[in-house]
Simulated scan of single mutants.
Amino acid sequence: LTESAHIKDMLAFFRVLINPWDNLSWNRILLQLEKVGPKTVQRILATLRDADDPLAALAKYRPAPGWKAQFDRLTDTLRRLCLPDQAPADQFDLVMTYYEPVFEKMYHDDYPRRRKELDQVRVLISGYGDLQAFVDDTALDPPDVSGAPVVDGDDEQRLILSTIHSAKGLEWDTVFVIGLAEGRFPHQNTQPGEQYEEERRLLYVAATRAKRELSLTYPKELFTPDRQHLRCAMSPFLREISAGLYNRVERAGAVTQPLTSDYPMDLPPPKPRTTVPTAPGEYAEGMRVSHAFFGLGRVASLPGPRRVEVLFDRHGSKILHLDYARLEIVG
């Protein structure tokens, strides 16, 4: 479905919201403007490429009179798409309002059939709580499980990229689960309770796809859409795994914690860090705390044993495990 031209047109709008420097998606959107050709698009892209905020730079771009009206409609649509507190389905409807007249002209020969496919996308996106997850899932095709033979006949040399949802019910000898960083898995906007546990169940699905070897990975640093470097910590789900159940391997390949499932499990529990309160009861909702990386924040809730949810002034809501988080009570 996502290989159809009209579906790619729609997805391009969502992708530039997630990554405003996505030149391929911008190229697709801008070429839909009447009387705009590749040379004009390249001039616009050069402006966006050097801007700290490509969406703002586009709004300031001066179009020619012949395509100014449609260009203004495009920039207004993008502005409305960036407004806060919108569900992905609402953003789809905004894009469709702009795109439909363009769509009818471009695909007038089989418009009804293509329109039904866009309706299917509307149904799909309604099942997502945030746009990032939808874009991530559409970036990868589901694994081919039709039984068709591999072209070169060497099945062992294949690398399959899949979302967790697409991998349900499938198994492989070796599985790598990537991106297990704090704030990304679970997503930083995940609410304590059922949403949090649903994210945990998704990780369980991913981990149980492996028959022999499982690697759980996280980046130590991310490059954000606004071109800033952001240091990362591992997902709280990984920090909950007992130390005797895994090997920890650094980037260079060195095993820094040579632990396996055969490691004796009757070891005494690790001593809590002296800077961390030993009981959740020492925290209370509304209490001001400080974290070495996230800075100042306020305790929002105590979602579970040894966990505290903190709404940080500059980094939003985070759920921290008290065995690992270095929190200082400041008021």
Rank of each mutant, 00 (worst) to 15 (best):
E328S: 13
N247H: 15
I29G: 13
P88Y: 09
L267M: 07
S235P: 02
T138M: 11
T208P: 08
G304F: 02
R209L: 01
R307L: 09
A46R: 13
D154L: 04
R306W: 01
A56M: 11
R80Y: 11
R212S: 05
L131S: 00
A12C: 07
L159V: 15
R231F: 11
A46H: 14
V151L: 14
H315M: 00
S4E: 12
V16Y: 05
R314C: 01
T138N: 02
G253I: 09
G193R: 07
D152N: 13
Q120K: 13
Y98F: 15
Q42K: 14
V276G: 08
P270H: 06
L245I: 03
R201H: 07
L322Q: 11
S146L: 04
A56D: 11
P20Y: 06
L159A: 07
Y61L: 06
A59I: 09
F14M: 04
D109P: 06
Q120V: 11
H108M: 08
D173A: 14
S4K: 12
R184E: 03
T274Q: 07
L296C: 01
I44K: 04
V145I: 08
C232V: 03
T97Y: 04
T260I: 06
P225H: 03
L30V: 13
I7N: 09
N247G: 05
R28D: 14
P63H: 01
D141M: 03
S317A: 03
L131C: 02
P143I: 07
D9M: 07
N189L: 01
R200D: 03
S166C: 04
L11K: 05
G331M: 04
L45V: 08
V299M: 05
V102R: 14
L203C: 05
H291W: 00
D144S: 10
W67N: 12
T77E: 03
L31Q: 15
T2F: 06
V150G: 05
K60S: 11
I319N: 01
P65V: 05
A56H: 10
D144K: 09
H321K: 04
I160P: 09
H291D: 04
E100F: 03
A89L: 11
G153Q: 08
D119L: 15
T75N: 13
F134D: 00
V135T: 07
Q70V: 06
A5S: 13
T275E: 10
L267H: 10
L83A: 15
E328P: 01
L161V: 03
T40C: 00
L140V: 14
L302V: 12
I178P: 01
L311V: 10
L302G: 10
D22I: 04
T75D: 13
M10W: 11
A206P: 03
R231L: 12
